[in-house]
Amino acid sequence: MSSSSLLELRGISKTFASTTALSTMDLTIERGSFVSIVGPSGCGKSTLFNVLSGLIQPDGGSINLEGRDVIGATGHVGYMLQKDLLVPWRTVLGNITLGARLKGKVTAEDRDQAKGFAEKYGLGDFLNHYPSALSGGMRQRVALMRTLATNHQLLLLDEPFGALDAQTRFEMQQWLLQVWRDTQRTVLFITHDVDEAVFLSDRILVMSPRPGRVVDDLAVNLPRPRTLETLVSPAFTEIKSKVLHQLHHERAL
């Protein structure tokens, strides 16, 4: 394991009854990188996350996170879904500190950290609001802050912006990049949206239809910070067409 790699998967596979969701997979993720995973529906992307987060036990292989074997364990990654899963009876502050509450008591530090996130990212005035008073974009922000507040290096984001309208989604993408830079986390990001993957990532993994495996591993060498300009640059289009080709090439097979 090289000194800069955060996560190493070796020979991970998962079969449910008769369906093989993940065929044998090897993967190394660098610390601090932003890696997107694209692939057709049902190819095993979420299954990969579930294995990583410890929700399901893989059939074989090893997972090494920051030098620890984490197979079958939970509580070592941040995790976020398309559904924001905010709890309606807790305020914004209460939702951000939910991870701490679920592991015990919410300390003053936890609260200060949550306030810090909220203030820094434009939700300072809403700390005492219930989620029902928030817009979809605000709710997703709170959900991401909750994920950040668990203070895990590795964040697994499973189509987090899938339900947002195009404009909000773009705002959220920019915001996510800002957060990522500020907090120096490592992000694994599942998306259907190739534009999104190219815009956000250092690296894109393209998966084949079931049984899922990584069929292409593309580096995205676009300069950061990325802006609206990035979206219309020739380099962006070039990478995007590569990814699309890879996806469609796989589908045609």
């Binding site: 987060s53 410890g54 929700l55 990654v77 559904k83 899963l85 709890v87 679920l102 592991k103 668990t150």
Partner: peptide
């Protein structure tokens, strides 16, 4: 919500806390 319970598990919460 089943997904919420799943999330709590990922966060490492035991069943009593959940």
């Amino acid at each position: 919500d089943k997904d919420l319970m799943t999330l709590a598990k990922v966060f490492g919460a035991n069943s009593l806390r959940r």
